[in-house]
């Protein structure tokens, strides 16, 4: 019992990312309104970013900026364990900016659908296509 508890508590960020991925996926598939589907997509995206950032974390480390890094000649003794892993941060930083660009494209398509069909509910659009 105690073992299971420590197992759950030790990685709670992973659990949160997992729950958010499930929420986002449910929203993307089950919701009838297209804007809600877009919101579900952005929740899914943040959940994956949360997972990557959780992996980059190191305990007892500092932010990824080298202290007194500028203007000092010799940098022989930089301990990698003192700084969190910067590589996932870089990948996720660009993912966020590309995410807002794709969000813009999705919303533009959505407005165009509304202009043509007069609604953004999925079932009503399907009916108006059939007619």
């Amino acid at each position: 019992m105690d073992n299971v508890l420590t197992y759950i508590v030790s990685g709670y960020n992973y659990w949160a990312a997992l729950i958010l991925i499930m929420i986002g996926m449910y929203g993307m598939i089950a919701k009838n309104n297209l804007l809600k589907k877009v919101i579900g997509m952005s929740i899914f995206q943040s959940a994956i970013i949360l997972f990557y950032i959780s992996i980059s974390y190191k305990s007892n480390a500092s932010i990824p900026i080298i202290a007194h890094g500028h203007g000092v000649a010799d940098h022989t003794a930089i301990d990698p364990n003192l700084y969190v892993n910067p590589l996932p941060h870089v990948l996720m930083l660009t993912a966020i900016v590309v995410g807002v660009a794709t969000l813009g494209v999705a919303l533009a398509v959505l407005q165009k659908i509304y202009r043509v069909h007069g609604t953004i509910e999925e079932d009503e659009i399907l009916e108006s296509i059939k007619e």
Binding site: S59, P64, H75, I78
Partner: peptide, 24 residues
């Protein structure tokens, strides 16, 4: 998955120490 905050997890061992040590 690696343990929470583990400095020797696979994500933090191969490439990122090289960046941290040599970037300046």
């Amino acid at each position: 998955l690696p343990e929470w905050g583990d400095p020797t997890s696979p994500a933090s061992t191969y490439l990122s120490p090289h960046y941290i040590e040599n970037i300046v």
